[in-house]
Amino acid sequence: MNIFRILGDVSHLLAIIILLLKIVKSKSCAGISGKSQILFALVFTTRYLDLFTNFISVYNTVMKVVFLVCAYITVYMIYVKFRKTFDSENDSFRLEFLLVPVTGLSFLENHSFTPLEILWTFSIYLESVAILPQLFMISKTGEAETITTHYLFFLGLYRALYIANWVWRYHTENFYDQIAVVSGVVQTIFYCDFFYLYVTKGRQ
């Protein structure tokens, strides 16, 4: 495992924990898109089904379980525990606009036409667009709490580091997964506009 991959995973974990702590400590999920969090829970669920079929490493298993548990706790916090603080009015992105094309594409373009592989592909495609309801919500309300922008920063950083990881693996291991790489690049592009605002506005 290379340094980009480790830092990417740490950054991903940090993003998830920042969001969860923000909600728990402020007892509020204002400004957070519940729809994006549902999509991330769905992403982890459909991708980590291999927890039941093959063992890769202790690190791999632990991280998968942590991501899954955190994703479901976050959804629980938004839709159950702090439901009253959830701004459902502005979380109005239509999920079918993402789910329908992503489902279709995962059946058409995958490594092999088997249930687990199609679900894995679905999770990769879905992750690349899962943040859109959150970005849509921010552009609609025109505001985001500082802590929410930190969450998005680490989530975007994780994606950028994974690209560096793939460049590294391509050169050192001849490793290349087209589905993951293309989706990963698409996903990272969505964060570029946010990164620009984070750096320029964040300093004021």
């Binding site: 995973d9 291999d50 490493s57 791999n60 998968k64 490594h111 001849n174 290349y176």
Partner: peptide
């Protein structure tokens, strides 16, 4: 390049 399915990644 060899195409390997990257299931070890998160």
């Amino acid at each position: 390049a060899a195409v390997v399915v990257g299931k070890d990644e998160l």
